[in-house]
Every structure is written in structure tokens, then in C-alpha cells.
Design a protein around this nucleic acid. Structure first.
Length: 144
DNA sequence: GCCAACGTTGGC
DNA sequence: GCCAACGTTGGC
């Protein structure tokens, strides 16, 4: 089981909008970066990730589930771009800010802290658990 | 709004 | 295949 992080500017696609999609989920389209695309190609249905608000908020605000494996990005018009579908799983009771992540020594190696520009990122299991707890979610009781 | 970091493009 | 120029991202 791998873990991930998805970044979005709230002004273009917010956590509120993602939640409103509910079980139907939403194609994570528009990614035009090979590294990010390759990470999405490696994702499996049912894997979990964080939803991160960049620019405004700068915080991990929720948990998502990978709802489909990678498929062609419907906005890419035959280009080499694939993406997965995501559905919202849960709010973080307390958003975990970038500042807090950078201040936490055990998260020093987190991609978000080191290469904040990558829009889809891998997260280790340990990082996933730490950020969940910082956000007020117990990964055990969630069955994660 | 600035600018550093990064990725991509294209001339050579 | 190198690398300068350019565009974009996102923290500050």
C-alpha cells in the first residue's frame, strides 16, 4: 500500500468541491508534468492520499482515496497525459499547515518540504501516519 | 507582487 | 547532447 499527496490551488479546485463530488469522485486532470503523471500511473485503486491546498491555506486539509487506476486525461486531447480519479474520504479535523510540517523533524524528508513544486507526490507510510495524527485523525481507527 | 526553483524547449 | 532562454509554480 502506497500513500500520496495531491496539490491543488483552492481557487481552481478546492477540497470543498472535491467533497461535493462525493462517491462519484473526480478526474485529477490537468497535470502536465511527467514525474507527477508517472506517479499516478503507479497508483492502485483503493490507495490513500492527502489533499493539499497550495497558495491559499498551504495545508493538508483532507484524505482522498484513489478511485480508479490511471487512464487518459480527458482534457489532454490525445496527449501523453494520464490521471487517476479521486474521491474525498474524510476531513482532517485540524488542517496541518506547511509551516507545521517544516517544523516537524520527523517530516524533514517529506517531498512537500523539499520540493514543493511537484503537484503529485509520494508519501511514506510513516509520514502518512504522522500527518494524520497531527491533523487529529487516528490512522488505526480509520483502518488505514 | 516578487522571485527562486524547477521543468521544458529549441538552437547549435 | 549541451545549455541558455523561457514559462510556470508556489512560498514568502
Amino acid at each position: 500500500m502506497a500513500y500520496w499527496l495531491f496539490k491543488s490551488e483552492p481557487s481552481s479546485w478546492s477540497w470543498e468541491k472535491q467533497k461535493a463530488k462525493g462517491e462519484a469522485g473526480q478526474e485529477w486532470d490537468g497535470v502536465r508534468n511527467y514525474q507527477a503523471r508517472n506517479l499516478m500511473r503507479a497508483m492502485k485503486r483503493g490507495e490513500r492520499g492527502f489533499f493539499y491546498h497550495s497558495n491559499e491555506g498551504k495545508a493538508v486539509v483532507g484524505l482522498v482515496e484513489v478511485a480508479t487506476e490511471a487512464h487518459p486525461d480527458s482534457t489532454a486531447e490525445g496527449g501523453p497525459w494520464d490521471c487517476v480519479d479521486l474521491k474525498a474520504l474524510a476531513d482532517l479535523p485540524r488542517p496541518v499547515t506547511l509551516e507545521e510540517i517544516k517544523a516537524e523533524p520527523s517530516l524533514a524528508e517529506m517531498v512537500l518540504a523539499k520540493n514543493s513544486r511537484l503537484s503529485v507526490q509520494p508519501v511514506t507510510e510513516e509520514e502518512f501516519r504522522i500527518v494524520c495524527r497531527m491533523g487529529g485523525l487516528d490512522p488505526e481507527t480509520l483502518g488505514l
